[in-house]
Write a protein that binds this DNA or RNA. Structure first.
Lengths: 99, 99
DNA sequence: ACTAACCGTTAGTGGCTACTGACCAAGAGG
DNA sequence: CCTCTTGGTCAGTAGCCACTAACGGTTAGT
């Protein structure tokens, strides 16, 4: 799940799609990579369930997938709850020094 | 920032540290990698401001860094607000078909 | 002082991945 | 039918990253 958004280009694609549905070539125009790269990234995002595909003639219109995005956000929240939840116990302990 | 938590081992370290401060060798015991690898991951996390270091004799006790963790969480929230915020406009638009 | 424990650093290696370019398939339009 | 556009796929490459192994420095214990 982290892998899907672990890439800078894929995050740019997700943010782009958040503005509205886009075709592959349209996305590639505003990215410093080729259409081929964009297509491969979209495949990763699709496999992760983050985007959905709609065929319109020779073009493929991609858009964000509600369920996938929300599911990912939930997983991130779980991680943060564990990371921050345990941390609350620490800041109450005395700390002698620190670098 | 995503790079810091983009690695599976580093996420395990963060979760481990959320339970309390740990020494390097202590962390390595419960991880399938060597002390050297753990030390390097801690360096990355320290550079990212996610952990702090405390010297105790020959040992280095690591703990989570409040400011860094909170800052990272804020950045993640910003990303999600943008990704989900824009999405709200989409689900109101008519959708002909989808694959 | 000598030894053992603990840890950071460095060099080197293997594997993964993002990227490009070429090719191919399919629809649109003349 | 032919051509152009669009995009998925494949092969190959370059770069990065996690890891190990060996080394050196520092501290605690005897």
């Amino acid at each position: 799940m982290w892998d899907a958004l672990g890439d800078r280009t894929r995050r740019a694609i997700v943010l782009r799609l958040s503005e509205g549905p886009r075709a592959v070539g349209d996305l590639a125009t505003y990215l410093p990579v080729s259409r081929s790269a964009v297509s491969q990234h979209l495949k990763v995002l699709k496999d992760a369930g983050l985007v959905a595909e709609r065929v319109a003639g020779t073009r493929r219109i991609y858009r964000l997938n509600e369920a996938g995005v929300i599911a990912l956000r939930d997983q991130l929240d779980t991680f943060w709850n564990r990371a921050l939840g345990g941390y609350q116990e620490l800041i109450e302990q005395p700390q002698e020094d620190q670098s």
